[in-house]
Design a protein around this nucleic acid. Structure first.
Lengths: 183, 183
DNA sequence: GGAAATTGTTTTAATTATAAAATAAAGGCC
DNA sequence: GGCCTTTATTTTATAATTAAAACAATTTCC
């Protein structure tokens, strides 16, 4: 390496104007894994932020509520609280609170499960279905526009690489669980 | 398309055991952009969740506090509240609260800025620096382990593709700002 | 059948997060 | 200098989030 590269240029910037985020202050010799994680987080947060803002402005709904409804929309038979919690990757208590508020608003219904009285089955009400159907094409349009700078081949590669990453993460967390208490 | 593909197999699973997340219920004909966004979010959330849990178990610190300290650690001259807010991509009020608690714990110090009395410069105290130095190599080890299933070439490709995505997101949000109020 | 462990959910307390309004200091413009 | 706008931050109110404890129903094991 040449000695005159002592400062750290933003490696993502080819011609982009300044933007400061978590990556900004990384040293040029930081670990590839760390750079990757921070960039992933930045991308994810950028999309999330944008979607959150637009959902509020356009539909006066919060992202977590939309998210929960999206899961229910794709599950015709409804989902239990636990299924919602694991799909959304949030705590049980969080789902309880979100569902409570959506029930109050009449968008979602909780029905007791005949076979197992511990569980509730949650599903969209017809009002919820109507509301969600109005939002989903607009939401998809936002995502498409945000990803417009990627061509289909970029997207396919990215999807595949993220699939590998997901398996790596799963393997790592499975290993941790398997080893729990063995020290 | 053949008619017998009415159910949706998990496109990320090559041989992975069952895992349900936001992607699980996507129809096989859903937009590539949407699949990509949900997979990105899943990966991001998986890492975040793991790091959050381990930081608490191992160092009894929350992820947002660690995150804030990490930014300060890489900024020898300290950062203003606004810089922290934009780097971490969280609201101003959030940074105020986090900084308040870190100051109480003695990990971080706020100093008034001579040149501009509106701003505060926030930096790690020596106690904060010591605490962070103890955490950072362990934290890096966790990330490395989680990404161990990716070879260096995968990581390089992924970093580059996420760089493109980041530019796409930035372009899209710049466009929206430029068009604000022009309707 | 009954004790013990497991599972599904809610509750509780604290933290984190947002958006919007309020405050306050700087800077620009006559 | 004095007004207006912008910028930096805090405050307020509310929502989301977590971890841990509490609860309740189910399953397992004898």
């Amino acid at each position: 390496m040449s000695a005159d590269r002592g400062f750290a240029p933003d490696p993502a910037a080819e011609d982009a104007p300044a933007m400061s985020d978590r990556e900004s202050a990384l040293a040029h010799d930081d670990k590839l894994e760390l750079r990757l994680w921070l960039r992933l987080l930045t991308c994810s947060a950028m999309i999330e932020r944008e979607v959150r803002t637009r959902l509020r402005e356009r539909f006066d709904i919060t992202l977590p509520r939309f998210d929960l409804m999206a899961q229910l929309d794709r599950a015709p038979g409804g989902l239990t609280m636990g299924e919602l919690s694991s799909r959304l990757m949030v705590s049980n208590g969080n789902v309880t609170g979100l569902a409570d508020r959506l029930v109050q608003e009449g968008l979602v219904a909780r029905e007791p499960e005949a076979a197992d009285r511990r569980t509730f089955r949650v599903r969209l009400t017809s009002a919820g279905k109507i509301a969600f159907d109005a939002m989903t094409p607009v939401h998809e349009g936002w995502i498409e526009a945000m990803l417009h700078g990627l061509d289909p081949q970029d997207m396919a590669s990215l999807l595949a690489l993220l699939g590998r990453l997901k398996r790596s993460l799963k393997a790592s967390s499975d290993g941790r669980i398997r080893n729990a208490g063995k020290e």
